[in-house]
């Protein structure tokens, strides 16, 4: 529903929203109570109130008793709608879930768990403040819970805190809108946008003065899930015997061709940080695709071969330069 221009000029709603959001402390869990629930008529609600007043004036003028009744009944309907809208939100419990990490420019989804502790069903919509995406509607049966997944487009690498969540509903008639703003403690990791780096410089095997490959081909590094092609020598038989899980031993420098080193300093000093991070991210993905051993180095940190190396490496890139 579009607002008239003068109304938008007042920007009443956005001011109100900003003010409401500022007052909120973030928390991992919220239960909606009357302090947090706001109720306002929709434009349809205002319209119907206007109609009720017009009927009332007509009743006054023509002394039509039943028209009074009609006018007052409409007003009563509006009042009851306020309660009905309020009841849709009251008592609802929200809990932050997790958000999948994405690359900058992609859409991340924050998930929120809604618990309906009451005996009536609810129909509501969730919307992230500042998100231009569509609102997500959901239905909650009595005594049930549901996961709400809210999309948010990302632009920048880093840790993205979940913006304030606006929950609203205007059932059953669309006359009164109940809404509540909550800030849930939830963060999404946004990796740098991978940027192709095919210059081929210094893609060589590690070992140039570094400890890695010289430390011995057979030095045990870590255990990883069995992959097709692992030799029987690599299988951790003790683990298999004890836990009945097929596990392979990984050895530093054991992979043919040695580990690639993806280094911050591979690039000329003039390159800016973001482009370095983007190209490093691309190279991490390349190594993962080729299942090539790699070692990522940025100033002050390093990620070597280990479980979840991809996530670790990308997270390192995403959070590079973050003030602790």
């Amino acid at each position: 529903m579009s607002w008239p221009r003068w109304w938008r000029a007042l920007r009443f709603r956005s001011h109100l929203q900003a003010w409401l959001v500022r007052r909120l402390p973030p928390s991992a869990q919220w239960t909606l109570r009357h302090q947090r629930i706001y109720l306002l008529p929709t434009s349809f609600g205002w319209m119907l109130l206007g109609v009720a007043l017009a009927i009332w004036v007509g009743a006054l003028n023509y002394a039509v008793s039943l028209a009074y009744a009609l006018s007052f009944w409409i007003i009563g309907l509006l009042l009851v709608s306020v309660l009905m809208a309020y009841r849709q939100l009251a008592g609802l419990t929200l809990q932050a879930g997790t958000a999948d990490p994405v690359f900058a420019g992609e859409v991340t989804h924050f998930s929120i768990r809604l618990d309906n502790p009451s005996g009536w069903s609810r129909t509501l919509q969730g919307h992230l403040a500042g998100s231009t995406g569509r609102t997500s509607a959901c239905q909650l049966s009595p005594h049930s819970s549901v996961w709400l997944s809210l999309p948010l487009a990302t632009t920048q690498r880093g840790l993205l805190a979940m913006p304030a969540l606006a929950l609203s509903c205007d059932v059953p008639f669309g006359l009164i809108r109940a809404f509540a703003y909550v800030r849930l403690r939830q963060q999404a990791l946004v990796y740098p946008v991978p940027q192709a780096d095919v210059s081929g410089h210094r893609q060589g095997v590690s070992g140039e003065g570094e400890a890695l490959s010289t430390a011995g081909d057979d030095e045990f590094s870590h255990l990883a899930a069995y992959r097709d092609g692992d030799t029987p020598r690599q299988i951790a038989w003790k683990v298999l015997a004890r836990r009945d899980v097929l596990t392979s031993k990984r050895f530093a420098g054991a992979v043919a061709g040695g580990c690639r080193v993806l280094d911050w300093h591979d690039y000329p000093p003039g390159d800016d940080a973001e482009s370095r991070l983007s190209r490093l991210a691309w190279r991490v993905l390349e190594c993962e695709r080729e299942q090539h051993c790699y070692r990522l180095r940025v100033p002050g940190a390093e990620v070597g071969p280990q479980p979840h190396q991809r996530e670790q490496a990308l997270a390192l890139l995403a959070r590079y330069g973050e003030t602790p």
Partner: peptide, 14 residues
């Protein structure tokens, strides 16, 4: 439900 609940409100205002 809404009409029945608003009926007493209407009567009072009336």
């Amino acid at each position: 439900q809404a009409l029945l609940l608003s009926l007493p409100l209407m009567l009072v205002l009336f």
